[in-house]
Write a protein that binds this DNA or RNA. Structure first.
Lengths: 205, 205
DNA sequence: CTTTGCCATGAACGTCCGTTCAGTTATTGA
DNA sequence: TCAATAACTGAACGGACGTTCATGGCAAAG
């Protein structure tokens, strides 16, 4: 049974297009399960059951399980880079570092699972897929590296080693995924401010 | 074939003691594979093959796969806490924070796999096992929390939220596992110093 | 030399895995 | 009304999984 027309009206379903309900649902469920239990521990049957279809139906939407993981990570990285490029990239290095810090944390509000998967499931990608994601990760980290180097050159930051500092800051910010919960005692904006305070001081600004 | 007597001499093998070679070997191999590929992705047969025995032989040393993971994490946490208690725990909060920071990083030299697993494989523990490990983790983090609170009270540190700061610092230090390699451009002592510089400034000391 | 009993084998168990596919259903455009 | 086709089912595939166990070899003890 195709439910689409009930929701969408009756346009645009050329005979033979894929369902625009099941596809996104599969991605949502896979994302959530991969984040909660890990890629290797989640079977296609478990995803299918949660979606409400048989396992075979998943293969109308993904060629295989690996592609499902890769597509999730890939579109996340592209969305992350796109969203990042819309955030503040002007001003002094200190301004830009604050924008980066707040952006990275605030992005957890909309896509906590994606951020979690992006650094937990790297080792479950095939070498080819890993290379693609790693390059995008590199682009993202390069933005932070660029800010740090500019800050050092401008005399705003005092850093022994900007490359290590990049890694340290990214790790620190990513750590938010491991403990932050929406219903916790702090809003994400408060978390942003606390982290920004530490990052600012850490770089000597 | 039992190779022990060739290496150890001929003492202490009472009829019926477990081999003192295979047991440790299994733990070493499991540790390395779990760290590299993840608990769920490593089969008992793969561990056995790397050790050089059949899969069934593993069950002379562990009741099941879950216990193997748990034992590795549990003895790691106890070793970590024991080693930590021998490191510097006196002096000003700043001294103690430096000791903690350097200890945590330097411990990577001896047990990189253990540290990596301890924060990557938590979700693959059964609820009961998770509770045990989580309590030990809590003890370790409490040491850092205590230092931070003492520093704030002593007026040495300026921290908005010591609890969040604890998490942030731990995440930052744990991040070392994801990129540090022995053969890299920096010695671990250099890494210690770079991180200590950032931690010190981040807490406002 | 014989007994003891640890240690390992290798086959087997039931189950689950990712994936494929012929067949069924439902809905469309003509 | 009917052919076309997307979506899905349900069964099946070969293989891998964690785990068990009867069997046997082999080093130490008596």
């Amino acid at each position: 049974m195709n439910v689409r027309s009930v929701i969408d009206g009756d346009m645009a379903r050329t005979t033979g297009s894929h369902s625009d309900i099941t596809g996104p649902r599969i991605r949502e469920v896979a994302l959530r399960l991969f984040a909660a239990e890990g890629y290797a521990a989640v079977s296609m049957r478990k995803i299918a059951a949660e979606v409400g279809v048989q396992a075979g139906a998943l293969y109308n939407y993904t060629p295989d399980k690996q592609s499902l993981l890769f597509d999730l990570m890939h579109s996340h990285m592209e969305d992350l880079l796109a969203a990042r490029s819309e955030a503040g990239t002007t001003g002094t290095p200190t301004d830009r570092l604050e924008a980066f810090t707040r952006f990275h944390i605030s992005y957890h509000e909309e896509r906590p699972h994606e951020i979690f998967i992006a650094y937990m499931e790297l080792r479950n990608l095939t070498p080819e897929n890993f290379a693609v994601i790693e390059e995008l990760r590199g682009k993202y980290e390069d933005e932070l590296s660029g800010i740090l180097r500019a800050g050092v050159e401008a005399g705003e930051f005092t850093l022994v080693d900007p490359r290590v500092a990049t890694r340290a800051i990214i790790s620190m910010l990513n750590g938010v995924t491991t403990w932050y919960r929406r219903e916790g005692r702090l809003t994400l904006t408060e978390v942003e401010t606390i982290y920004w305070d530490m990052v600012r001081k850490a770089v000597g600004a």
